[in-house]
């Protein structure tokens, strides 16, 4: 089993295809939609976690290309240097996915890597330079 994070880009006329359904049904994959930006008549983007056998993932991604969509596998990840963090919460102001949140019980920052879209907004927003991008780490 393997798990990857992928951004898919759809041309305006293709967004109606229930892609996730096909990937699940025909390719035996587990698909978790992390972020969707699909407004009508525009290029749509979908960020998903895909989990399954390596050959199924390959075949699934081939199908994505076939229907005229593009994809990019995430090859970066965000590193939170927790020991340097002061838990100010400034980064939570920009995080679009809810990966960065304040734990209300003790007001510490929590980072849910699974939800992270690697948009890198927090890297610049953190005043203490506690967040950084790591290359080549395929999830």
């Amino acid at each position: 089993m393997k798990k990857i994070k992928v951004t898919m880009y759809f041309p305006a006329n293709k967004i109606a295809i229930p892609l996730a359904y096909h990937l699940i049904k025909n390719y035996n994959l587990m698909v978790n939609i992390l972020n969707a930006d699909v407004s009508l008549n525009k290029v749509g983007t979908l960020v998903v976690d895909i989990e399954g056998e390596e050959k199924d993932i390959e075949a699934g991604l081939k199908y994505v290309r076939q229907i005229g969509a593009e994809y990019a596998v995430f090859n970066k990840s965000i590193i939170w240097k927790e020991e340097s963090c002061v838990h100010c919460g400034t980064c939570t102001a920009v995080c679009p996915s809810g990966a960065l949140k304040m734990d209300k019980s003790d007001w510490s920052l929590t980072f849910d890597k699974e939800k992270c879209l690697v948009c890198e907004l927090c890297v610049k927003a953190c005043p203490l330079r506690v967040m950084s991008v790591k290359n080549g780490d395929i999830i």
């Binding site: 002061v86 100010c88 919460g89 939570t92 102001a93 003790d106 007001w107």
Partner: peptide, 25 residues
Amino acid sequence: LMSGSIELNGKTVPTAPLSSIKKAR
């Protein structure tokens, strides 16, 4: 503000702190 969001012009807007309550404690 500390609840995580407020209502602003009929919209729910997320709030974020800039000073550390954990450290203040």
